[in-house]
Simulated assay, not measured.
Amino acid sequence: MIRKATLSDIDKIITITRACATKMIAEKIYQWNEKYPTYEAFENDIKRNELYVLTFSEEIIGSVVVSTLKDKEYNDITWLTVDGNNYYIHRLAIHPEHQHKGYAKKLMDFAETTAKEKDATSIRLDTFSQNPRNQKFYEARGYQKLESIYFPKQSKHPFYCYELVF
């Protein structure tokens, strides 16, 4: 089941993102670390009603942010559509014990359906340049790779921006 997250869910979400970070670091993918994602980021997502959790047997196993807020880092990107009714995906996470079972696909299906129901023109996101599995995942869903952005607190490597036009 997918539902809106509550403040009481944040500790579990942080546990999941930390487990994901540990797994990625073990795979030499330095995308998330102790500085990101933060409790405050999830708290702000909840205040905007944009953070969702995926549950399995009443346990939270994943989360995703489906947002209308365009981060300033995206301002210089040449997007495929004009700014307007675009949605942005952030911090998609599935606990490593539940990965490779279609749960990320389920969260992305939900995000895309949510955006379409709101008459969005597109969904935009970024993913780490050193994470080929994520790139393949989004490209297989029809997302087009665009330009790069940088998040120095996370990595010296770029993040690739993607857009799916409806």
Rank of each mutant, 00 (worst) to 15 (best):
T68G: 03
F128A: 03
T114C: 12
D119F: 15
A140I: 03
S122M: 14
F137L: 07
M24R: 00
D11L: 10
A19C: 01
K156M: 14
I29F: 04
N33K: 00
Y162A: 01
Q31E: 13
R18T: 08
I16M: 14
K101T: 06
N75S: 07
A111K: 04
Q144E: 15
Y87E: 11
I61L: 06
R141T: 02
F128E: 02
N75M: 07
T6I: 11
E139M: 14
G102E: 00
T113G: 10
D71I: 02
V64D: 07
I149Q: 11
V53F: 11
I60S: 09
F110L: 04
S148K: 09
F151R: 10
P96A: 05
H90L: 04
R48T: 13
I10T: 12
T55M: 10
S148M: 05
L164D: 01
Q130H: 10
A19Y: 10
E50L: 06
Y88N: 02
N85R: 06
A104S: 08
L7D: 07
H157M: 06
N131Q: 00
C20P: 07
E43P: 07
K116T: 14
V82T: 15
L7A: 13
I14Q: 01
L80K: 10
S129I: 06
K35V: 10
F42W: 07
L51A: 00
Y160P: 06
G84V: 02
K72I: 07
P37Q: 06
N33V: 01
Y150V: 04
T113A: 15
S8L: 12
I89F: 11
A93E: 09
N33W: 00
Y39H: 09
R3P: 05
G62K: 09
K153V: 06
D126E: 09
L164S: 12
T78F: 08
K28E: 14
E73T: 00
E43H: 11
D11K: 15
I89T: 06
E27A: 04
F166S: 05
Y52F: 07
T113R: 09
T6Y: 07
T127Y: 03
I14A: 05
K28C: 08
T78S: 13
T22E: 11
C161S: 02
H98R: 14
T78A: 09
T121C: 15
N44G: 07
P96L: 07
I14M: 09
Q135H: 11
T78W: 11
E73W: 00
Q135C: 10
V82K: 15
K136V: 12
